[in-house]
Amino acid sequence: MNASSPPRPQNLHAPTDKEEVDERRMELMVSYLLLAGVVLSIASLLLGLVLDWVHHGTLRLVYLIKGVNYFQFFVHDIAAFAGPHVWASRTFVNLGIALLMFTPFFRVVASVVFFALEERNIKYTFFTFFVAAVLSYSLFLR
C-alpha cells in the first residue's frame, strides 16, 4: 500500500493517443452542451413563471401545445420576442420547453459533426446520423 496517495489528476484521462484525445474532447463538448441547455431552459421556465405571477398576482398558466410541430413551435416562439408580447410569461415558458427539447437533439447533431469531421469515424457518423434523422422526423410530427 502506498502511504501517501498521489493527488487526483486534473485530467481524468491522461491522453496517450489520438483516439483518447478525441474521446476526451468529445466528452467535454457533450458535457458542456447538456449543462448549458438545461441551465438556460430552467432559467427561462423560472422567468416565465415569475412573470406570470407578476402579471396576474397568481400562477395560473394553463394551455396546450397543439397543432404545430416542434420546429414551428420553436420558430414561432423566437418570433414572439420581436413582437409586442415579449414579456408575456408564455413566451419564456415556451422557450424553456423548446430549449430543453433542443438540448439532447443538438447533442446528437453535434456528435454527427464530431464523428464525421474530427474523429473521421464512418460507423459512428452513420449511427448518430440515423438518431438525428429519426429525431428530426419525430419533431416534425404534428
Binding site: 416565465g48 398558466l61 394551455y63 396546450l64 401545445i65 415558458v93 447533442r107 438518431v131 410530427l141
Partner: peptide, 23 residues
Amino acid sequence: GVTALAGTSVYIAAGYVDPGLAA
C-alpha cells in the same frame, strides 16, 4: 435524455403537453 425527447415529440404532436403544468 434522447429517448425521452423521442417520446416527448410524439406527446407534443398529440397535444398532451401543457407547458404551464410542465414548467
